[in-house]
Amino acid sequence: MSGERDAAPILNGFAHSLLVTEGPLLGSKDLHLLVERAESARRKLVNFLSSIGGWHAGSSLSSINIVAALYGHWIPSGSVKGIERLVVISKGHITPALYVWFAAEGLINEKELETFAEPWSMLQSHPEARRLKGLVINSSGSLGQGLSIANGIALASRIDGTHREIAVLLGDGELDEGQVWEAASTAAAHRLDNIIAVIDRNMVQHTGPTEMVKPKEPLAAKWEAFGWYAVEVPNNAAAIAATIEALSELKDKPKAMIVRSRG
C-alpha cells in the first residue's frame, strides 16, 4: 500500500474557474450594470422558457436575479478581493435561468441552449456537474441536499485554512425537506460563518401557495432560532448583490438571505 495518495481537490482547478474576473465590481455603476444584465437575461429566459414548454418557469423567473447576482457579481467581486466564492445549487430545477445566464454571459455557447434536456447535452434538465465543469460544483435535482454539501466544503476549508465563502441557492418549497434543517443545525453548531443560504422566497411550490401547503413563516425567525443571522431583501439583482456582499462582514454565525418576490 502506497500510503499518501495525492488528494484531488475537485474544487481547485475547475469550479467556477470561468467566472473569476479582474477589475472593480463593487461600485454603484457595477450594480446598475448588473440590473441591466439581469433584465436582459430575464427577457432571454422568457423566450427560452416558451421554447421548452415552460419547464419550471416560475422558479426560473424568480431565481434569475439571484443567479445574476451570485454568478455575475458575487463570485467575480470575491476574486477581486482574493476570496474564493462558490455557489452550491440546491434547487436544481432552475436550470433554465442558470443556462440562459451562462449563455448570456458567454460562458457557454448560445447554440447549446437548443440542446437543453437532450440525452447527450451538457445542459441536462437538472444539473449534472460532470457535464458542467467550471460552472457547476454539484449535481442536483433532488431537493434538500445543497446546504449539507456546502457545510462539507466549509468544514474542509476550515481544516485546510482556505478562505472560501459558499452561497447555497434554496427554494422556499424546498424548506419542507427535513435535511435542510439538519444542515442548518450543523452550520450553526460549527459556526460556519462563511455559509450563506440564499432562499428564493417566491411564495409558491408545486401544488400552490407555500403557506397553504406547509407554512414557512415566520421564516426569518426560524433561521434565527436555528442560530443563524437572517435578512430579507426584495427580489432585485442590485439589492441581492449589495446585501450578500455586506453579509461577508458578519461573523460567528451562518447567514440566511431571504429573497422575497412581490407577493
Binding site: A8, P9, V88, Q145, S148, I149, L155, S157, E182, T186
Partner: peptide, 16 residues
C-alpha cells in the same frame, strides 16, 4: 442524511 451529503461536500473540497 446530513452526514452523507456533508461528507460529499468534503470530498468535493479534496478530502477523503
Amino acid at each position: 442524511q446530513d452526514l452523507v451529503a456533508t461528507a460529499a461536500g468534503m470530498a468535493l473540497a479534496g478530502k477523503t
